[in-house]
Amino acid sequence: MSLLQVDNVSKTFRGLKAVDDVSFTVEEGSILGIIGPNGAGKTTLFNCIAGAIAPDTGTVRLSGTDVTGAAPHKVSKAGMARTFQLMKPFGSMSVLENVAVAAMAHGTSRRAATDAAADVVERVGLSRWRDARADGLPTAGLKRLELARALASRPRVLLLDEVLAGLLPAERLPVMDLLETLRSQDGVTLVFVEHIMAAVMRLSDSVLVLEQGRVLTAGSPAEVTRDPRVIEAYLGEEPAGAGS
């Protein structure tokens, strides 16, 4: 049984089919990248998987458990964590406490949660800002905080929504390194939506390409980037990361 199973998910907004009969599976310990031109429905699909939106049809199953359209905290408790493009830090609390909250919500005592949080903070490279107020962090730090909070809940699946957006190229590399170790050291399964092709190519085991709400194709990064349909879908649109 796959860890994450998405079956026939569709979502219509105001008469427009944003997501049209999308199905895929993600095996445990693998990394799936979801790409597609603007308006392809990536974000909507992402939200359907994460439970933020209830799809019109279809199911989302985590280890066989149906989590379609479940409330955010239930999704989190089921073992699926996500980051948000619009970051939602607990501004008045310290970085360490921000992360500890996530650990606490999953049943550990305050002391154990704080210890676990310290570890996570170290791993994402925020040790120096451990006791600083979260609302004092710049964008790069907030991104790492989002990641740290997601990790602290010890998820089985981590959903990442354009986690590299807004970062300077130099800031992206540490994050990508971190994501790789998540899979290799912690056995976390990753599903991420991304525009930055370099990251997709480097990190993904498999890639899902969306176009106009439908699955255009799926396969390894190398296969997908050579697929003429994919190239055509992106024609007339500069993929992020393209040089001149």
Binding site: P72, H73, F90
Partner: peptide
């Protein structure tokens, strides 16, 4: 701590698993 988290950011708190 959960109360303070919800006060700081309601949807953020939901996302980390707080009911």
């Amino acid at each position: 701590t959960a109360i303070r988290a919800v006060a700081a950011n309601d949807s953020g708190a939901q996302m980390v698993g707080i009911d």
